[in-house]
């Protein structure tokens, strides 16, 4: 009698545990799509990576393009600007990065950066400030010709987005 009762208890417990476990799996599998729907949708992801042609941007000229809804500076730097950027000693920098780290090998004249100031997100004006680079009018951050923070409240350099050269005159951002 005793063993029978024990057996039936075990069976019963097993059934309850199994039902509870399956219910848990079902609940989790239901909840995930309800949360995941808030992630960027297919039409947003489709424009997460764009191609941009550099043709027609003369030396010393900047254009601002939109990538993932963010403004991006693409600047064809002059030889003087490149020289200035390379001449800076790393020790003088708040956020040390060499000019090479901020550009692509063989395409040093091209500087591609997200145009939002790393302080609070304003868009700096180009070819201005004490370092010939960018000056943020909101809170006075100053960037050099490689977009590195030199003076003012911004904590880091202007962000270089992931990009690569598909050919000499075509880049893919993102």
């Amino acid at each position: 009698m005793a063993t029978e009762a024990q057996q039936s208890t075990t069976r019963r417990d097993f059934l309850f545990v199994a039902t509870g476990a399956v219910a848990g799996v079902g609940a989790a599998a239901t909840v995930w799509p309800l949360i995941n729907q808030m992630n960027p949708d297919a039409s947003t992801l489709a424009v997460a990576s764009i191609e941009f042609s550099l043709n027609g941007i003369e030396e010393g000229q900047s254009v601002t393009i939109l990538w993932r809804g963010l403004p991006v500076f693409v600047r064809n730097r002059t030889a003087k600007e490149i020289e200035e950027a390379k001449a800076v000693a790393l020790a003088d920098l708040k956020d040390p990065e060499t000019d090479e780290q901020r550009t692509k090998e063989g395409h040093e004249q091209w500087l591609v950066m997200i145009a939002n100031c790393t302080h609070l997100g304003c868009i700096p004006t180009g070819e201005s400030g004490e370092f010939d680079g960018w000056f943020c009018p909101c809170h006075g951050s100053q960037f050099d010709t490689a977009g590195r923070i030199r003076k003012g409240p911004a904590p880091t350099n202007l962000v270089v987005p992931p990009y690569e050269f598909i050919s000499d005159s075509l880049i893919q951002i993102g």
Binding site: R12, L15, F16, A18, T19, V22, A23, V25, G26, A29
Partner: peptide, 16 residues
């Protein structure tokens, strides 16, 4: 498939 299995388990639980 999940619902059929789950319904079977629920039926067993309910009967117990």
């Amino acid at each position: 498939l999940f619902l059929v299995v789950f319904a079977g388990l629920m039926y067993g639980t309910k009967r117990k």
